[in-house]
Design a protein around this nucleic acid. Sequence first.
RNA 1: GGGAGGAUUCCCGAGCGGCCAAAGGGAACAGACUGUAAAUCUGUCGUUGUUAACUUCGAUGGUUCGAAUCCAUCUCCUCCCA
Length: 381
Amino acid sequence: MSQNSEKFPVWYEHIHTCAQSGARLGRVHTPHGTFMTPAFMPVGTQATVKGMSPEEISGMGAGIMLSNTYHLWMRPGSDIVRDAGGLHKFMNWKGAVLTDSGGFQVFSLAKPKDIVEEGVHFKSHIDGSKQFLTPEKSMEIQKDLGADIIMAFDECTPWPCEYDYAKRSLERTTRWLARCIETHDNTENQALFGIIQGGTFPDLRRQNAKEITSYDLPGFAIGGLSVGEPGELMYEMLDETVPLMPWDKPRYLMGVGTPDYLIEGAIRGIDMFDCVIPTRIGRNGTVLTRKGRLIVRDAKNARDYTPIEDNCDCYVCKNYTRAYIRHLLKADEMFGLRLCSWHNLHFLLKLMEEVREAIAKDRLLDYRNEFFEDFGYKKKV
RNA sequence: GGGAGGAUUCCCGAGCGGCCAAAGGGAACAGACUGUAAAUCUGUCGUUGUUAACUUCGAUGGUUCGAAUCCAUCUCCUCCCA
């Protein structure tokens, strides 16, 4: 049993290291249950994974989901969630919850001059009102929301980005982390994760990884990747960063991703991932398959009476055809959006299950090769 | 029987002498989507040899340098009065 089990409300239990790849098979314990890692976390920005019920999500095997500080702060207000008894009760989700700090959203709403040492000035996307988010405020809101894992308030450095900007940004993010730690007082129930930035610069990544992980926190995340840079560059950054992260704590790669990134991330020692891809592209009529993405909405599926995937055991593939789903999408029926989201979520959760199985059998590299070659995945996944 | 209005590219619909292959919707087709301002956004949407040419705005004929736009006749539709 890890010594972190007594120190933090969320802790990592290591089970096995893949002899072939070095990937980790583990278990993360939280006040709201345990989930196996590497894990994919569905995103439920506004206290709901768009279109899906909590039962459906957990039924697919998800043990943890994301929600968002910024969105719930703006609407309905973090006090309402707090008074409801926290996010878990509010949305009737039995598993673990992780809230993002709001930094990712706020930076997209702010102008460069509105980003100051104290925090970020920005305008609400809902009513245009002027708002100000600081590390302290983010911690207060996340305390109200009551997630098991809360994230430090950081700047997700964009790509491409000048070295100097990435450096200044990361230094500020590091100072903000100290303020988050200072403010965070619900340490018995909520685990604060620090976030490593550094753009696509190896030395900055290494430097920041050391700085951030010097704080005794229950977990760490890698942010600012998968923001448009080439995949190879992201892998390179992971190779620079992950080895510097503590072995006995969960490692979370934020905002990732697509099937190929999930597998490559796991190979490089990542335990947790999240991404809006399955639900977003699902709502927009695209599904993930073993042979790449399929735009179900396209005319070629009009008379295709086969499931999205022949060998898929998800609810959607067992019961509905491409032709039917395409019809629903073309007719703007909400069930079509649900079915696509459903299949995509199942696809990624199942993928992670297979990744974990491959780690247990010391064959994750083989699995990766099979996935890419045998199943026809090329570059675009 | 008399009077009025109208027929526009797949559909609806703007245009009322040149800047019109013809606004804007819709449909259709294709693409994008990576810590969700996303059931969103982008592109194509008469034909071809596509920085251009050709055919098109109910039909035919006419006026004009030039017509979807003006005139005449015809066909069909809608409405009002008998």
